[in-house]
Simulated assay, not measured.
Amino acid sequence: MSTSDARVRRPRTEGDGRARRGPTMGDVAERAGVSRTTVSFVLNDRADAGIPDETRRRVIDAAAALGYRPNAGARALAARRSDWYGIVTEIVTAPFAVDVIKGAQDRALEQGKFLLIASSESEVATEAAGIEKLLEQRIEGLLYAATWHRAVHVPDIVREVPAVLVNCFDADGSLPAVVPDEVGGGRRATQRLLDAGHTRIGLVTLDPAIPASVGRRQGYEEALDAAGIPVDTSLVVAGDATADGGYSAASELLDRADRPTAIFCGNDRMAMGAYDAIKERGLTIPGDVAVVGFDNQELIAAYLRPRLTTVALPFQEMGARGVDMLAALTAGQSIGTEIVTIDCPLLERSSV
Rank of each mutant, 00 (worst) to 15 (best):
I139W: 06
I139F: 04
L142Y: 04
L142T: 05
L142A: 04
L143T: 07
Y144T: 03
A145R: 00
A146N: 14
H149D: 15
H149G: 02
R150P: 01
A151S: 08
H153T: 13
V154I: 14
P155A: 00
P155M: 00
D156H: 08
I157T: 13
I157P: 01
V158N: 09
R159T: 12
P162H: 01
V166E: 02
N167R: 04
C168F: 11
C168I: 12
F169I: 06
G173L: 07
S174C: 11
L175N: 05
P180Y: 02
P180V: 11
E182I: 00
V183A: 09
G185D: 05
A189L: 13
T190N: 00
T190W: 01
T190R: 00
Q191L: 10
L194F: 10
I201Q: 02
G202Q: 07
L206Y: 10
D207W: 11
D207K: 12
P208M: 04
A209T: 15
A209D: 15
I210F: 12
P211K: 06
P211Y: 10
A212T: 13
S213I: 05
V214R: 14
R216P: 09
R217D: 09
R217A: 11
R217K: 15
Y220I: 03
E222C: 06
L224S: 01
D225C: 09
A226I: 03
G228I: 06
I229P: 06
I229K: 05
P230T: 03
D232A: 07
D232W: 03
S234T: 15
L235C: 02
V236L: 09
A238L: 02
A238T: 10
A241I: 04
T242L: 13
A243G: 12
A243T: 12
D244F: 14
D244W: 12
G245W: 07
A249K: 13
A250L: 05
S251I: 03
S251R: 14
S251E: 09
S251N: 12
L253G: 05
R256T: 04
A257D: 14
A257C: 00
D258S: 12
D258R: 11
P260C: 10
T261V: 06
T261G: 13
T261E: 01
A262V: 04
I263R: 03
G266V: 11
D268V: 08
A271W: 06
G273S: 03
Y275A: 08
D276W: 06
A277Y: 10
I278F: 08
I278L: 07
K279G: 00
R281D: 02
R281S: 00
